[in-house]
Design a protein around this nucleic acid. Sequence first.
DNA 1: ACACTTAGTGTATCAAAAACACGTAAAGGA
DNA 2: TCCTTTACGTGTTTTTGATACACTAAGTGT
Lengths: 229, 229
Amino acid sequence: MPVKYKYPRPALTVDCVIFGLDDDELKVLLIERGIEPFEGKWAIPGGFVVPGESVDAAARRELLEETGLKNVFLEQLYTFGDPDRDPREHVVSVAYYALTNLAGHEIKADTDARSAAWFSVHDVPELAFDHDKILEMALRRLQGKVRYQPIGFELLPPKFTLTQLQKLYEIILEKPIDKRNFRKKILSMEVLIELDEIQQGVAHRAARLYSFNEKEYRQKEKKGFSFEL
Amino acid sequence: MPVKYKYPRPALTVDCVIFGLDDDELKVLLIERGIEPFEGKWAIPGGFVVPGESVDAAARRELLEETGLKNVFLEQLYTFGDPDRDPREHVVSVAYYALTNLAGHEIKADTDARSAAWFSVHDVPELAFDHDKILEMALRRLQGKVRYQPIGFELLPPKFTLTQLQKLYEIILEKPIDKRNFRKKILSMEVLIELDEIQQGVAHRAARLYSFNEKEYRQKEKKGFSFEL
DNA sequence: ACACTTAGTGTATCAAAAACACGTAAAGGA
DNA sequence: TCCTTTACGTGTTTTTGATACACTAAGTGT
């Protein structure tokens, strides 16, 4: 369906950096491009915005179409607008980042993509377009935001141990954290629910399970409370 | 110069929230629209992105064209992409915010605008499009960023007194700051140059003038130093 | 010279962050 | 069954940074 406009305009796309947490690494989901340009290269999943849908909706749609993921944490990152970031023409891309718990979600490759795979964020192949810049920015944003917003839970299963939670922060922030101080602090915030369950199937003393109390957090937030690690 | 594309695409604009600091208020520069839609309404200056120019460059160009400002601090804020934010068609806007020192810059109104004027950020008229949302977000961003990045200086003349600087933070953060603690902290960062000049033409003891040492700050920043108020 | 206005300066108290080590529970193998 | 292995769970002290607070100095105008 070709269209005519009075003045030329750049094309508009969305791209999603999708983070997942492995046992001891932060991973990012990439797709291998099945079409030109950059056919065969790995890239961040994304696609064109169609007029009439909000840019946020476009990001969610592409996320679902290309990876099957839905109901995940998704937030706008930055808009990349250099005219030569795409060899075909001026394509402006609104980048998002998403957080999901790696275990449980099976990833399916889509039409435009040959395959999809998780890579360690510190060991990614050469990427198409300016996607290395986007990834780097997403990583920095995640590192910054995780300190003062309880978004880390999105990377864990609904029930988790305090050790898992601590490890998450250690992996993202790339520095060790003192166990006792961490537990003291996170528990003193009173946004975790201590469950009557413990870990199953581990070859050592089982740890207690907790879950994030989002409702409680939102209420505290309204009253001026701020989550800070 | 009409153009044809294979698929429809949203239009793309940039908008700039321009902050300036008055003696005791934070102000924002608005223009009165001279054309439809929202003719006669006040709005944030902005305009269409032309293909081939980076979105950042488009923001700078519009800033210059509509207000005559150049060489100011300008940073991307957020991209607003709701399909019904413009009554004509789907127009996606990349919003920026700019900081400038109010005194010194004369503002000229431009072709598309009837006039331009500074408004207190807490007393703006009804705005065109979703510009109230953009302004609110810009304000929150400024309040957040000013705490951990030395961008406040952009709102002051190159030479300023510590009292002016303190007042700046009090105005932006909307809360009083203790004078001695503030001076202790800001001076201990060692990013200010104490000049051999003092204030002129005041009817009381003249204060010493300082300037921001950007070079020094950048070096400290590299070494892991972080500016925090 | 006196009144008025803002500049400039130090210390004591309080709160939060950092550092730090060992007994306990559960599973697995000898 | 007992010994080994592995991760769990817990308090106190020290250090650091944040907060609270009041007077003298300098310059202007009357």
